[in-house]
Amino acid sequence: MAGKIKHMIDAIIEQRAKENVLLQGVIRTKLMLKGIDPRKFTPLSDDDPAVISKLEALLKDFK
């Protein structure tokens, strides 16, 4: 399977920052400091379970 990580990153940014462009930048920075570079994931990227696990935890916190 592919593309799940890109989908999750987009969901995190949308949920947390909504339309706030400044906040979108901060969320991207936080992800990069966690070792997840949003620019590197496309709809064709492999579904790396380690990255997915980190993102699942984040999605839970953001609710």
């Binding site: 947390r16 906040l23 901060v26 936080k30 400091l33 966690k34 984040l58 916190d61 953001f62």
Partner: peptide
């Protein structure tokens, strides 16, 4: 700081 950032803006 990572955890702080997870839980607040």
């Amino acid at each position: 700081i990572d955890r702080i950032g997870d839980l607040t803006d």
